[in-house]
């Protein structure tokens, strides 16, 4: 079973994402901000990270930058998942190394298709 780390400061979003991901047969962990996510990735790297942009302590972009220099065996795929829908944000995220980008609100079909594109399902 593949692992997904859901990183979002909103409890509601984490719950919705968990529900969808579990229905796609992924095992799910949660992190409340970028720093929490980084620590969890260093402990044991997930296959994929679903990443919010705006979060206290450490934002999604800061997490992405930190991830590239972190001590991690295999870098997880990163799917940005955010309300920042402007093309500028999307380009910045892709340049910073995001593998995919989901604009909120999202649904099951969207997540399923993006997970397939990054090769996790």
């Amino acid at each position: 079973m593949k692992n997904c780390l859901v990183v979002d400061d909103s409890k509601v979003i984490r719950k919705v994402a968990r529900h969808i991901l579990e229905s796609l047969d992924l095992s799910v962990r949660e992190a409340v901000d970028g720093q929490d996510a980084l620590i969890q990735c260093e402990e044991s790297s997930p296959d994929v990270v679903l990443l919010d942009w705006n979060m206290p302590v450490m934002s999604g972009m800061e997490f992405l930058q930190a991830l590239s220099s972190a001590r991690i065996e295999t870098r997880p795929k990163v799917i940005f998942c955010t309300t920042e829908n402007g093309i500028g944000h999307i380009k910045a995220a892709v340049e910073a190394g995001a593998d995919e980008y989901v604009m909120k609100p999202f649904d099951r079909e969207t997540l399923e298709s993006k997970l397939a594109i990054v090769g996790v399902i």
């Binding site: 999307i90 380009k91 892709v94 995919e100 980008y101 989901v102 999202f106 993006k114």
Partner: peptide, 11 residues
Amino acid sequence: VQRGLSINDLL
């Protein structure tokens, strides 16, 4: 566009 299109193809 989110269903099926990769972000690279979208951009």
